[in-house]
Amino acid sequence: MDILLQQIINGLVQGSIYAMVALGYTMVYGIMGLINFAHGEVVMIGTLVAISIVTLLVQSGMPPALAGAFGVAGAALVCMALGWSLERVAYRPLRQAQRLAPLITAIGCSIVLQNLAMMIWGRNYMTFPPLIEKTQFEFAGASFTSVQVMIVTVAALSMSGLLFLVYRTKLGMAMRATAQNPAVAGLMGVNANRVISSAFVVGSALGAVAGVMVGTYYEIAHYQMGFMLGLKAFTAAVLGGIGNLAGAMAGGVLLGLIEALGAGYIGDLTGGFLGSHYQDIFAFAVLIIVLMFRPSGLFGEKTGDRA
């Protein structure tokens, strides 16, 4: 029982990180139908920028929590600028091109960002300085830390902020309209370029926050960390039904839970044949199975063929 609860807690924490990153994928996809493969790298850059800022400020005597706040802000600014430039420089010129061209561009951007990061921060693992004091809590036989509480709280707050933005502001309305029908939205006076740019900027900001979360949770960072994280987050977005905000959130949390529970129980399930290093298989196996039965993801709209 305590293992179950423990894995649920771990899964929730990991899942909220996935959800934050998944939102970046889903917003861009929902509005312009593009898989922004470079989003994982944006998150990675966010983490590394935050490390640099926090380390510098803490060394100069600032309390870690405050330095952390600056770190998040700095990372968010850098990532927003990065997301904006990616769209402006790499994707916008390709909007009319064949479907696969932007995908290859995204992959190219991803390679560029990864190697740029390696040149700036080196190829070694970096330690993420602790932002808050890590206290341990006990609950019904399972334990969790203050860091985990912080991650889930910040994720919940950021996602509520996003929902407010999308459903309660003018920009959000423009975003939803463009996602529904770009041509009609354009006729109604919505500036599609501005909407697409904002989707990239907002998604990147969420990614930066997620990057700091990953850093504080695992306490290390590396220029290659963005790839797998991005892949998992994208999987989460598809699992929930890509293009759908609530779907990305639910997909992220669900994926975190599945992975944690899978890793905890796979040995028992297979009679010891498969060990916990098969954890990464769960994400993809569940994805394939879900899509076999629900081709548009768990919460995706059914896209019927129109004749």
């Binding site: 790499a90 390709l94 932007p102 561009t105 992959i107 190219g108 390679i111 560029v112």
Partner: peptide
Amino acid sequence: RMLVFGLALVLVMRFRPA
């Protein structure tokens, strides 16, 4: 080397999308 390679991908798609 990889950086140049990535840039090459982006540039080719930018100027010769087909």
